[in-house]
Write a protein that binds this DNA or RNA. Sequence first.
DNA 1: CGCTTGCCTGGAGCGCACTCGAACTCCGTA
DNA 2: TACGGAGTTCGAGTGCGCTCCAGGCAAGCG
Lengths: 167, 167
Amino acid sequence: MTVTQTQVQTGTDTDTDAGGEAGELPADLCATADVPHPRPDGRDRYTISEVASITGLSAHTLRWYERIGLMPHIDRSHTGQRRFTNRDLDWLAFVGKLRLTGMPVADMVRYAELVRAGDHTFEERQELLRATREDVRRRIDELRGTLAVLDCKIEFYADARRASERF
Amino acid sequence: MTVTQTQVQTGTDTDTDAGGEAGELPADLCATADVPHPRPDGRDRYTISEVASITGLSAHTLRWYERIGLMPHIDRSHTGQRRFTNRDLDWLAFVGKLRLTGMPVADMVRYAELVRAGDHTFEERQELLRATREDVRRRIDELRGTLAVLDCKIEFYADARRASERF
DNA sequence: CGCTTGCCTGGAGCGCACTCGAACTCCGTA
DNA sequence: TACGGAGTTCGAGTGCGCTCCAGGCAAGCG
């Protein structure tokens, strides 16, 4: 995959307003490529309900994400309907990962703003991700501790029940 | 540690209403013994603000926990003030662990109800903990996946910045 | 032509986990 | 006896992350 698109989508869909920025070539590309992408890069214009069913988010939530500035400017069809691209899908997948970490939405918006601001924010973005990374490390450790406690309690109940069966 | 108390607190504190249940000998004892306990088992009657500073929860939250049934019936002094015991501290530590897992408070209340209901709920309690355990396993895996993505992005920014410095 | 379907917007509402405020009691000290 | 400090209850308020609703538009179909 690797998202090396620049080949703007050629209106395969009654839609033709394209209007994307010119810069933004390398972007991030980490390819989270768990899943290839429902449509190839030339024909990637998804309706909101398609994206909803792909991502598991509701259409409401997708619109809300856009309103609060968590999405990178979504294309519209000539009738004003949203048309999401593969790139938007990648972004949403990443946002999903961040959501799993418990990062507040405001912080994700901050990151999105940095992305929109251009390449000169690389350092700040990296710093933000690094802090998040440390957070995640800590949370994993906490969860491991919790797992130990749970195992211990489960073991306790197993013993108690074995004991009560014996007599 | 191991909480093998039965030696009820002998009013070391102008307080004397004790009034604990009779049963409940083994309890759970997993001892989460990260920290010994601020006071030994005979003299463990903490005020709400002491517990607040020990646990990091606010006094408001502690009262709220009691209201919603998340605490196992807290003693009162003769003037009606709460007196928490080491056992309450242990319970709060456990609740803290559960909170880290993202378990909804309602589910913790459910568990607390089972504990209050007596030993015949061992099976159900064990089942609940087992389900939680699986949850935690999944969350750890998710976080590991997120960590990988973060590392990848951080690496991307590192490369990008190195590249831009080179030219 | 009317009907359905899918999307649009702005704004209100909801559930959760607290968090705070008001009004009160009790206790120790000056 | 007055006062400050810590505790009490009940109920209302807050912030977050959605979630839903009303009212409207555009396209497709019988």
